[in-house]
Amino acid sequence: MHIHKYEKWWLTLGATSLVVFLIIVGISAFHYGSHPPSAKVYIDPERVDEIAPFNNPGVHKVEGKDWDYEVVFVASAFYYNPPEIEVPFGSTVKFIATTKDVVHGFQVAGTNINMMLEPGYVSEYVTTVDKAGEFLILCNEYCGVGHSTMTSMLKVVE
């Protein structure tokens, strides 16, 4: 098939750009570990309250791991437990969350922390909180009539 010279240039440029995007996100993910939240940890959604770590939601200091704190959240219509958390500026935090009922979102506004909570699955995300301030945690997946009132607060303190 005959293709115009400029069209060849254009397709080369376009395809190269796409490959560059893929290489950048691929290296960030598979070399630097910046994966989207993709945990494969399973739980019985009806027994969340009895199972560790969800029997004790909140902030826990940990030793000997790649992160300093574990933050455990339990979501249910239309609450997050705990309703507020505080972590020190500059610490590395692992967010661990699940839902007791329907699908919820877990988004920390203005950050990259954004994951789906699905019944039966544990969602995890590790990040270093390098900005101080108060960040709204909100449900960003429709879960019912109280959806837009479902919030918590992340305080990053110096």
């Binding site: 010279k5 400029y6 440029l13 376009g14 750009s17």
Partner: peptide, 16 residues
């Protein structure tokens, strides 16, 4: 000879 498509080239380069 191929049609003159300079304008097309610049337009798609803008998109790119």
């Amino acid at each position: 000879k191929e049609p003159e498509l300079k304008g097309t080239l610049y337009s798609v380069l803008f998109i790119g």
